[in-house]
Simulated assay, not measured.
Amino acid sequence: MKVKELIEKLQKLDSNLEVYVTSEDPDVVVPGYLVRPFEINGVSAFNVVTSRDEMRRPEISAAAEGEGRECAIIEVTADF
């Protein structure tokens, strides 16, 4: 998803709503729960390199300026 697509979707909502990110991914969800909630605690831009590990799980790592590609990063926490 691009930043402008996220903005368009968010603009359709009440601007006073709190925002949470959720995941149903079994590698992320705590056993016994169907969904794991996260709270957004930061938004920034970084140069990154994306890849997959030997088990095909997505990975992201920081890259020096001019290397990789610039991406918007939404930082989340499960402790809120």
Rank of each mutant, 00 (worst) to 15 (best):
M1K: 12
K2M: 08
V3T: 12
V3I: 07
K4E: 09
K4G: 05
K4P: 06
E5V: 06
E5F: 02
L6W: 03
I7L: 08
I7R: 05
E8V: 03
E8I: 04
E8T: 07
K9R: 10
K9Y: 07
K9C: 07
Q11H: 05
K12G: 06
K12I: 03
K12S: 07
D14H: 10
D14I: 09
S15C: 07
N16L: 12
L17C: 12
L17Y: 14
V19Q: 02
V19E: 01
Y20F: 13
Y20A: 04
T22N: 04
T22Q: 12
T22Y: 02
S23H: 01
S23Q: 00
E24Q: 14
E24K: 11
P26N: 10
P26D: 04
D27Y: 10
V28P: 00
V28A: 04
V28K: 05
V28W: 01
V29H: 00
V29M: 01
V30T: 14
P31N: 11
Y33K: 08
L34E: 09
L34W: 06
V35C: 05
V35M: 03
R36W: 02
R36S: 01
P37Q: 08
P37E: 03
F38C: 00
E39P: 03
E39I: 14
E39M: 12
I40L: 04
I40V: 15
I40M: 04
N41D: 12
N41W: 05
G42V: 03
A45M: 13
F46Q: 15
N47Q: 07
V49A: 15
V49F: 15
T50W: 08
S51R: 09
S51K: 03
R52K: 09
D53E: 02
E54G: 13
E54N: 10
E54R: 14
M55P: 03
R56T: 13
R56Y: 14
R56Q: 15
R56L: 15
R56F: 13
R57K: 15
R57T: 06
R57Q: 12
P58H: 05
E59M: 15
I60G: 12
S61T: 15
S61Q: 11
S61M: 12
A63I: 00
A63G: 02
G66S: 04
G66E: 03
E67C: 06
E67I: 05
G68M: 00
R69C: 08
E70Y: 05
E70G: 06
C71W: 04
A72D: 03
A72G: 07
I73W: 01
I74E: 00
V76G: 02
V76I: 13
V76T: 09
T77A: 08
T77C: 07
T77Q: 06
A78V: 09
D79S: 13
D79E: 13
F80R: 13
F80Q: 08
F80I: 12
F80Y: 14
F80P: 13
